[in-house]
Design a protein around this nucleic acid. Structure first.
Lengths: 140, 140
DNA sequence: AAAAAATCTGCAACTCAGTTGCAAATTCTG
DNA sequence: CAGAATTTGCAACTGAGTTGCAGATTTTTT
């Protein structure tokens, strides 16, 4: 029960200082083969060897995130926050910067993405959102 | 019970072709005065005239989104999706493009934001995520 | 301005993602 | 291999967001 993929996963866990357990190996392998961000339940479905309790999946993901092997990805649905579309054009919204200290959101209007470059490659953009988090000048 | 803010809200609803109701006026006004994206419960708390059922708040936000007056904003927590951090440096993750048709996520490595420009203004960036949605070349 | 039509609101009950406490199982260390 | 440290699974829970439906409100029609 070994494979190059599995060995790489094992090494990643070792390097990160995490216990090398079956659930972690399995989940890491699923993510390494994924072509897109996956939800907890989608990860569960892709597990071949044995089913894992969803609590385990969530906790495993949490540890993998903690050591920097995995991160969370956004989607428009289930975003949880709402704001006026005020400063946004049809397909593009000004990049936002949210200060993790004071919570205020700044609109960085001059840091727009070079959309033309993307369109040039044949991508049709229907929704764009850029989000930055950190400390604003006042809190830094 | 009228004010410039309220009048603007009223006009926005009218222009959008929505019934001009008390809950919609109230919620729109809250969002117009907000310095940051708000959750449903935070919006509820800021309502001064009268309390609104959370179902009403959610449905109102949904209609406002439908007509383009409001949009959803991301946060790292509660993102719901997970992916390997593989291609990401410490504070910066490659811009992602997700095709709404086939669901595949592409990494657009050469469309990075000019981070230096932002740092120059005194912002400290701890987390950055750029997400694009639309049609990929194969699906367009 | 009243009545009819269209739409919206609130309630109660529900679904579904994600969390918590704890005992049993697994992994690492010496 | 034994003991210590950590992880896993279960069951039960929390909290965001949804649904059906009856009653209320807004707009349109006359």
């Amino acid at each position: 029960m070994t494979s190059p993929l599995r060995d790489r996963a094992r090494q990643m866990l070792k390097d990160a200082g995490l216990y090398c357990t079956e659930p972690r190996l399995a989940i890491l392998q699923v993510l390494m083969q994924a072509a897109r961000p996956l939800r907890q339940d989608q990860i569960g479905e892709k597990l071949t060897l044995r089913a894992l309790n969803k609590v385990t999946v969530y906790r495993t993901l949490e540890s993998l995130i903690e050591v920097g092997l995995v991160h969370r990805a956004f989607t428009y649905r289930r975003a949880g926050y709402f704001e006026l579309a005020d400063h946004c054009t049809e397909h593009q919204c000004h990049p936002h910067f949210t200060c993790t200290q004071c919570g205020v959101t700044h609109c960085l209007t001059d840091i727009l993405l070079p959309l033309a470059k993307i369109a040039q490659k044949g991508f049709v953009i229907n929704r764009q959102q850029v989000r930055l988090e950190g400390l604003c000048p006042a809190c830094a």
